[in-house]
Amino acid sequence: MKKNLCLIPLYVWSAVFIVFPLLIVLYYAFTRDASSGMSLSFESFSRLADPMYLGVILRSFKIAVIATLVCILCGYPAAYILARSNSRSKFIIVILMLLPMWMNFLLRTYSWLTLLEKSGLINSFLSLFGVDPIIFLGTEGAVVLGTVYNYLPFMIMPIYITLLKLDQSHLDAAADLGANPFQVFMKVTLPFSVPGVLSGVSMVFVPSVTTFVISQIMGSGNVTLIGDIIEKQYRVVNDWHFGSALSVVIMIIVLAFMYFINRGDVEANNGNGGRLLR
């Protein structure tokens, strides 16, 4: 009885803020405005057949995949070094890493403009050497940079926490049995940290696919992602039906993606890794 009571807030929260809104999105996706209220319709989905939207979806996934890969490449070594360092500096590094996260997301992203604009700090510095201004903003590269910058800590933390749990004795055992440091890493450390990488991937990839703020700021409005199109349906066009249909499609793709991630997670758990942050 007591236990169930404690869970009530969770159920209420989930119902009100997760399940109910989802149902509304589904409702809008499968209906259309008709003269007599709403009617069942697949019109919103048939509009998606337009190759234009497919192009935007593909571009969104391309940018999210690249950003996620960059996050792994930068985040893994960072997490590794962090997990191996001695305790005093470790605390400072973790704080330094999390410090930007305490600042507003928009501010953080806007500050990149000061650096990257044609009249920004980097170009001003380069101009001292007679270099013509380089246009960084408004490209897919800039959007990837903004995404990596904002979501990198979400990659580092899960990997870091997994690596912390790695027992030194495992590494010693591997070394005693004749593995060189590279082999120790490949055969022990890396497989052990796979669950951390996977939860990092899902925490970086999912928001990256649907972002519209980053693409608007870093992309100077030149790089349209699927999030921009969805946002526009709600805020400008007032076509909630099409916006919902787009959201449903993205959700299905992301769900499929999460399914594969989770399967990988389960397989990794059958090995020796720990499960965290899901």
């Binding site: 939207y53 192009g55 935007v56 409005g221 349209t224 921009d228 199109i229 066009v237 076509d239």
Partner: peptide, 18 residues
């Protein structure tokens, strides 16, 4: 008739940077 503008605009913003 807002739809006409919306579709036009979606096409324009989609082409950007492609």
């Amino acid at each position: 008739k807002t739809k006409i503008y919306d579709e036009l605009w979606t096409e324009i913003i989609t082409v950007r940077g492609m």
